[in-house]
């Protein structure tokens, strides 16, 4: 598999888990709508993505997704407005509009429009938006993804995942039942009562999952009020609450997925 001398057998073994939001995200606070320099083509002062005077695409500068859309770092967001903005910017930046331009402009348009698409995809989804903001704030979610689970299974590492304390009892019981179901399936037996019980449990967790989203919206409001306040301590508190909530939410999602898998198999 590996042709590179002493490189380990697994090519991706040393992936550092970092996403788009990086150290530069904090330093790249180009303010919404602020002109950053002059247009390479016509010389007027320009905005971030394209020149407002001559319409030409501009070389990409590292900005975070909120800045890209000239939005404050708030969590309540008018998605209809975001969509309109997305369509407007697409009409300025998409590579189809630069098919006849020189190679440099084509490249800029490809990069700018991929940034636009990545930003839109992240911001329009309420959970992805919250996760992204938390990462901008320097906190990282627990590895709840299925990949992380599989990876932990394959390497024998302990997955960074903690059972939320308030769920401990229910989760313990559910896991026992799941184990029982798997055993029964292995033996070729069928226990309708157990299956019915698991379905019920699953429903309960699904309701919890939905309720958490409503709870999250409450934190959004708190966060948005604090954005301009400069109260670092209060902000930090809301941030941690959101982080905790998302971790719990992911945990439940995985749990429901496991139950579904066990029921289907």
């Amino acid at each position: 598999m590996s042709r590179a001398g002493h490189w380990a057998a697994q090519p991706g073994a040393s992936v550092v888990n970092v996403l788009m939001a990086n150290p530069e995200s904090k330093s790249s606070l180009i303010m919404p709508g602020e002109a950053t320099s002059t247009c390479w083509s016509c010389g007027t002062m320009r905005a971030v993505h394209f020149c407002s005077a001559c319409g030409k695409v501009q070389p990409p500068v590292p900005v975070n997704y909120f800045t890209f859309f000239a939005l404050p770092r708030k969590l309540n967001l008018d998605t209809a407005l975001l969509e309109r903005e997305f369509y407007e910017l697409s009409r300025k930046l998409h590579p189809d509009l630069y098919a006849r331009a020189d190679q440099q402009e084509q490249e800029w348009s490809m990069e700018q429009s991929s940034l636009l698409n990545d930003a839109y995809r992240t911001l329009k989804d309420p959970i992805k938006r919250t996760e992204y903001l938390l990462r901008l704030e320097g906190v990282e979610l627990e590895e709840q993804s299925k990949t992380a689970t599989e990876k932990a299974r394959a390497t024998g590492e302990v997955k960074k995942q903690v059972v939320p304390p308030d769920l401990l009892e229910e989760v313990f019981e559910l896991n026992m039942q799941l184990e029982e179901l798997r055993m029964q399936k292995k033996m070729g037996e069928d226990d309708p009562a157990l299956i019915e019980e698991l379905r019920k449990q699953k429903l309960k967790f699904e309701e919890k999952y939905e309720a958490l989203f409503e709870e999250l919206k409450g934190y959004w409001n708190q966060w948005d009020k604090l954005v301009d306040s400069g109260d670092e301590e209060a902000r930090g508190k809301v941030r941690d609450q959101m982080l905790d909530l998302l971790n719990r939410r992911n945990y439940i999602r995985n749990l429901v997925r496991d139950v579904n898998e066990a029921l289907e198999n």
Binding site: Q10, P11, G12, A13, V15, T147, E150, A154, T155
Partner: peptide, 11 residues
């Protein structure tokens, strides 16, 4: 995706 440890796909 890219292949990560354990032959898993990280999307």
């Amino acid at each position: 995706g890219i292949e990560v440890a354990g032959g898993v796909t990280d999307k």
